[in-house]
C-alpha cells in the first residue's frame, strides 16, 4: 500500500556479482531501534530511488526487488539488481549511484511467490536474474531438510550470478546450471518426468520461459495448483495520455516512460500498491470511461474483467489513446 514505503536502511555493502548484476546489503540505520521485519522466501521489497531523467529532472522510481538473503538472518536484507538495457532509470540508479553508507527507503517485505507449505519436493526453474527469490527459498528449505532442486539457465558464465556458490553449497545433485553460450538448454519436458506426487514447480524468468514451463507442466498433467511463477514485470513505455480523476476533478499527464501509478505519485495523489508488477491486485482501479484502448499488462485481472473495460491495474497497464477517466 502507499503507506508501506517508509523504512529507512543503510547500504553496508555493494558487490559486483556478475557482469551486469550487483548485490546490495541493507541494515537498519545506526542508532535507530528499528529491527528488520521477518520475511519468507520469495518476498520482495519496493525500493524508492531518486534519479534523474534524460532532461536532468529529479524523478522518483519505486522498483520491487526480491530479497535473496537468508530468511533466518534478521540482521540484514540483500537484493541483487540487474542493470537492464533501456532502463528509464531505476536499475541504473542502483548501479551507478548507490554506494556504501547511503540511506535508502524500502517497503515492508511482501510475498506473492511463497514456497508451498504442503509440498513434498520443490523444483525451481530460474532464468537469469530470476534466480533471486529462489536464493532465499532454498536457504530456508535447506535449513529444514526440505527436498528441492534448482535448474538455472543464464546467457554466459560471466552473466549468470551466484551459480558457482550455489553449486558449491548445494551440490550438483540439487543444482543444475545451463549456459546458453555453451549450447545448454533446460529440457522442461524431461525434468517434469518421474517427479514424485506432491512436487511443486516454481519458475521465475523471462515471460517466454514462464509460458514454456507452464505449457510443459500442463502437457505432463500437472495440476495448476502445483505450478507457481513470478515475472519481473516492469511498466512498459507507450504514448503519453491524460488521466482524469473523476472524484478529485484533476487532470494528470502520464508520460511516455511513466506508469499511471508513477504519474499519480508525482502529482501527490495517494494510490495503493504492493508489488508494482501487476501481480498482487492492490492497485486495481475502476475505469469510468476510456477514449482509446486500454493495454492490460498485468497478471491479475481475468479475461472477462479485461474485456469489460471497467478495471485497470495502474502499476503496469496504460492507455493507447487520448484520455482515461478513473474513479479516483
Amino acid at each position: 500500500m502507499s503507506k508501506n514505503i517508509g523504512m529507512q536502511v543503510v547500504v553496508t555493502s555493494v558487490k559486483q556479482v556478475a557482469d551486469t548484476v550487483k548485490c546490495f546489503r541493507f541494515v537498519p540505520v545506526d542508532g535507530s531501534d528499528m529491527v528488520l521485519p521477518r520475511f519468507s522466501g520469495g518476498s520482495h521489497v519496493v525500493v524508492t530511488m531518486k534519479g534523474k531523467d534524460a532532461a536532468g529532472n529529479t524523478v522518483t522510481y519505486r522498483n520491487p526487488y526480491s530479497l535473496m538473503s537468508s530468511p533466518d538472518d534478521s540482521s540484514c536484507f540483500e537484493i541483487s539488481v540487474l542493470r537492464t538495457e533501456n532502463s528509464r532509470g531505476g536499475s541504473h540508479f542502483m548501479h551507478d549511484q548507490v554506494k556504501e553508507g547511503d540511506i535508502l527507503t524500502i517497503s515492508n517485505p511482501v510475498n506473492l511467490f511463497p514456497v508451498s507449505a504442503g509440498g513434498r519436493k520443490h523444483i525451481f526453474i530460474a532464468g537469469g536474474i530470476g534466480i533471486t527469490p529462489f536464493m532465499a527459498m532454498m536457504d530456508a528449505l535447506a535449513a529444514r531438510n526440505g527436498k528441492f532442486e534448482l535448474h538455472y539457465g543464464f546467457r554466459s558464465r560471466s552473466h549468470g550470478a551466484y551459480w558457482r556458490e550455489l553449486e558449491e553449497r548445494y551440490g550438483h545433485s540439487r543444482v543444475r546450471t545451463y549456459c546458453q553460450a555453451e549450447g545448454q538448454m533446460i529440457d522442461f519436458g524431461e525434468l517434469l518426468e518421474h517427479q514424485p506426487l506432491g512436487t511443486h514447480l516454481y519458475v521465475c524468468g523471462p515471460a517466454p520461459m514462464i509460458e514454456a514451463v507452464k505449457k510443459s507442466a500442463r502437457e505432463a498433467g500437472w495440476p495448476d495448483e502445483n505450478v507457481h511463477s513470478e515475472e519481473f514485470l516492469a511498466p512498459p513505455s507507450g504514448q503519453p495520455f491524460i488521466v482524469k480523476l473523476k472524484k478529485s476533478q484533476r487532470n494528470i499527464m502520464v508520460g511516455e516512460h511513466q506508469s499511471i501509478l508513477e504519474a499519480l505519485e508525482a502529482a501527490n495523489v495517494d494510490a495503493n500498491f504492493l508489488c508494482r508488477g501487476g501481480a498482487c491486485g492492490q492497485c486495481e482501479t475502476a475505469v469510468c470511461s476510456a477514449d482509446g484502448e486500454i493495454e492490460h499488462n498485468d497478471h491479475y485481472l481475468s479475461k472477462d474483467e479485461r474485456q469489460s473495460g471497467k478495471k485497470i491495474m495502474i502499476c503496469v497497464s496504460r492507455l493507447n489513446g487520448r484520455e482515461l477517466v478513473l474513479d479516483l
Binding site: 517434469l192 517427479q195 514424485p196 506426487l197 498433467g221 502445483n226
Partner: peptide
Amino acid sequence: ALSTAHMGLR
C-alpha cells in the same frame, strides 16, 4: 499406490 506415484497422476 499413491506412495510410489508420480506427478501427472490425477
